[in-house]
Computed example of a mutant assay.
Amino acid sequence: MVIVQEADFDVAALMERLRANTEGKAGAIVTFTGYVRDYAETAATRSLFLEHYPGMCEREIEALCATAQSRWDILDCLVVHRVGELQLKEQIVFVATASAHRGDAFAACEFLIDALKTRAPFWKRETLANGEQFWVQQREADNQKTEQWDTPAQA
C-alpha cells in the first residue's frame, strides 16, 4: 500500500494495519520513520517543503514495493510519504515491511527507504531561520547506496 498525503500519520495505527493485512503470518515487521532535521550549515532549518508529481509518484513507489516483494520473501509493505510544508522535527516518511522472518523484512525495508530517496519523484525546498531558501540536491552517497541494491550481492 502506498499513501502520499499532506496530513501527519500515526505510526502505531499504520503498524496495526500492516499486522491485520498479514493475518497473523508475519513473524517480523520492520519500520522506518524519517523526520525533518536540521542539517543546514548556514542557519537553522525552519521547514521543508515537499512537492511531488501526483499519480506518477505513487506509481513509482508502487513499482519499488513490487520490486521489494519480488526480491525478498515479504508478505506486505506499506509506504506513507508526506508532501507540503513540514516543520522541523515533523514526520516525513514511514516505510514498513512484514515477513515471516526478520532478515527479509530488514533488507526490503532498507531497500525501499534507499530507493525512495533517489527514485521517487519528490522535490524538497528547505527554508532556514534566516529566510534563505534552496532546493535540496540529491547526494552522491545516496545515489551510490541505491545503486548497490542493483548488484546481485544485495539480493
Rank of each mutant, 00 (worst) to 15 (best):
W72K: 01
A129Y: 04
A66P: 00
H81T: 00
Q138S: 11
F94P: 11
K117G: 05
Q137F: 00
R102P: 09
L86V: 06
F94G: 10
A141D: 14
F106Y: 15
G103S: 13
A68C: 08
F111L: 11
H101D: 00
L86D: 04
D73Q: 13
I61S: 02
E85R: 12
C57N: 14
F111A: 06
A120V: 09
F111H: 03
A100S: 10
D114Y: 01
W72C: 04
R102D: 10
F94C: 12
R71I: 02
G131W: 05
P152W: 11
L116V: 14
S99L: 13
T146L: 05
F106L: 13
V95S: 01
T151Q: 11
T151K: 13
H101S: 05
W149V: 13
L128S: 04
G84M: 14
V80H: 09
Q133W: 07
M56L: 15
E132D: 12
A155I: 14
D114E: 05
A66R: 15
A129V: 15
T151M: 07
C57I: 14
P54A: 10
L88P: 08
Q87H: 12
G103P: 00
G84K: 10
Q69F: 05
L64W: 04
P121Y: 12
I113V: 15
A141M: 06
Q133H: 04
T151G: 04
Q91T: 07
T127I: 13
Q69S: 15
W123V: 04
V93C: 11
Q154F: 13
F106H: 05
Q133G: 01
G55N: 06
Q148N: 11
T146D: 03
A66H: 07
Q154D: 00
L88C: 05
D76R: 06
A63G: 10
L116P: 01
W123S: 01
L86N: 06
K89R: 14
Y53P: 00
A107E: 07
G131H: 08
W149G: 04
Q137E: 15
L64M: 13
Y53H: 05
T67E: 13
W123P: 02
T146Q: 06
M56F: 12
T146G: 02
K124T: 11
